[in-house]
C-alpha cells in the first residue's frame, strides 16, 4: 500500500469518527464548558415552604448543587448517599447542600421528599432557568462550587459507588480543607 493510500484511509476513518461523535455521541459524556467559570447566580422557592432563597446567601461557602426530579429513577438510587453526604459535611459551617428540583410538579416533589427524606433545602425551578444556566442535560447532575464561587466539579449520573467516593475524597474534602484540588 502506497503512503498516500494509507493517509487517505486514515483521513476517511478520522472523518467518520468525528461525524459519529458529533451525531450520535451521548451529550452526557460531553465535558461541561462551565468547569472553572464563575457559577451563575440563582434564586428559587424552597419546595416545601415556598421561601425564596438566593445563591448570594452562600458566598464564601463550598456549595453542592444536585439537580433531581421525582420522576427520575436514577435520582432515587443516589438519594441515600446525598443524605449521608449531608450527615457527614452538613455540620461544617463552610458547606451547604442544595437540591434543584428539575421539570417537576410541586406536589410530586413534595411527596418524593416525604417518602425518601430530606435534610437540606430543595429549590423549585419551574421555568428551567437555573437548569439552563447550569447547562443541565438531564437528571441527576451534581455540581460543586468552591468558596470563590467557581464551578470546580460536575458529575452526570447517580452518585453511587466510585463516583460517590471520588466526590468525597477528591472534591469535597480537598475543597473544605483548603488542600490542592486534584483533577478527577
Amino acid at each position: 500500500m502506497k503512503g498516500w493510500h494509507f493517509i487517505l484511509a486514515l483521513a476517511v476513518v478520522g472523518l467518520l469518527v468525528l461525524f459519529y461523535k458529533g451525531l450520535w455521541g451521548d451529550p452526557r459524556t460531553i465535558p461541561t464548558v462551565l468547569i472553572g467559570t464563575q457559577a451563575p447566580s440563582f434564586s428559587g422557592p424552597v419546595v416545601r415552604t415556598g421561601e425564596m432563597i438566593t445563591s448570594s446567601r452562600f458566598q464564601g461557602k463550598v456549595v453542592l448543587l444536585n439537580f433531581w426530579a421525582s420522576w427520575c429513577l436514577e435520582c432515587r438510587t443516589e438519594h441515600e448517599n446525598l443524605l449521608a453526604l449531608n450527615r457527614r459535611f452538613g455540620s461544617n459551617p463552610d458547606f451547604v447542600m442544595l437540591g434543584i428540583n428539575y421539570q417537576d410538579r410541586k406536589e410530586d416533589a413534595e411527596k418524593y421528599l416525604e417518602v425518601y427524606g430530606s435534610t437540606f433545602n430543595h429549590l423549585r425551578d419551574p421555568k428551567g432557568a437555573i437548569s439552563i444556566d447550569y447547562g443541565v442535560y438531564g437528571v441527576p447532575e451534581t455540581f460543586v462550587i468552591d468558596r470563590q464561587g467557581v464551578i470546580r466539579y460536575k458529575y452526570v449520573g447517580p452518585l453511587v459507588g466510585p463516583a460517590y467516593t471520588n466526590l468525597i475524597e477528591n472534591v469535597l474534602e480537598p475543597l473544605l480543607e483548603g488542600r490542592p484540588f486534584p483533577r478527577s
Binding site: L18, I30, T32, V33, T37, D133, G135
Partner: peptide
C-alpha cells in the same frame, strides 16, 4: 454556547477543528 458548549449548535461553528 457558554452553557452547553458546541453541542448546542445544530451546525458546528466554522473555526478550529
Amino acid at each position: 454556547l457558554s452553557r452547553y458548549g458546541d453541542y448546542i449548535l445544530l451546525a458546528p461553528q466554522k473555526s478550529g477543528l
